[in-house]
Amino acid sequence: MDLNWRNWLKKGWRAAALAPVLLLGGCAHNPFWIFDPKGVMAKTDLFYMIVDVLIMGAIVGLTALLVVWFMWRYQKGKNRGMYDPHWSHSNTIEVFVWGIPIIAVGFLSYFAVRGTFEINPYNPTVITHHMKPNGDPVEVDVIATDWQWLFVYPQYHMAVANELVLPVHTPVFFRLTSSAVTTTFFIPQLVGMIDVMPGMRTKNALLSDHAGEYQGIASDYAGAGTSWMTFKTKMVDKADFAQWVQKVQQAPGSMTYASFNRFAEPFINVNHHLVYFSSVEPGLFDHVMTEVMRGKTWPIPPMMTENMVDYMKKQAAEHRD
């Protein structure tokens, strides 16, 4: 992982990716999130992307050139190349035609397998191999509802809706479940996607050394409110994090299963509101999961958002947080 050529590759690729952006107006912020990773997981993903594009790009690019060259050379009436009306077989060419892709797929397979283990969301070796024995990772339980995110911090007995704040230089481990339908948890610059499913638990992890604010997305269609089911992810210093925890712990709201029951009703988060819960019923995550497994659902009203403006009025009238 610490090989030098990797960094070199990354720099080159980033420069290449940035070139069109700089031409377009030279803003400082790189909008190509995938090329601008700020977390270990996302960085590893980018590395494999570069390897793959280099290998495949070389083959595909050369093939394209070959075709263009043949098109130029053998155009009828131009008499640039020889015409051989019967030539349709060559053992040498057959060997190359099968051999090149086989070798290339062999190479790619090696990287594919290695990469899969390195960023395996359940045990990402890029994070776990470098963890200090007393690295005190932060744990976050993620519960997706229709259509909000609830982030529970079991170590601090608190929860936040629709915003994720995490310390830098600290491994973060997620457990994820959903109260309603399947969706996907994704923070492009920090960590790749993992599905969030009702009645089930998935895991993911991230580690970042760059303070800043990153976009989090619900990246699988989950119904009418998906487009607004976004959340900001703030990576902050450890000190700032501690301060923030204190702030949340003083908030008025608290989250029990009873209040969750109300929280989980369909709600389109158009105004991106955040809610802090200073205390959380212990084991809420498991409680939600078992209830869902027992058949609990939070149904959607028929024809929801047939008229979105009306629906938003209705939602506002309900005064829900």
């Binding site: 075709v67 060419i93 035609v97 892709p101 290339a104 797929v105 397979s109």
Partner: peptide
């Protein structure tokens, strides 16, 4: 993942064969 990439081999063969169909042709 590996199984998926295997499909690229026969597909590549097809692409190359089309290219060599044009080779020494009269297009």
């Amino acid at each position: 993942s590996v199984a998926t990439m295997l499909v690229g081999i026969p597909t590549g063969v097809k692409v190359f064969n089309w290219a060599f169909t044009m080779y020494r042709g009269r297009l």
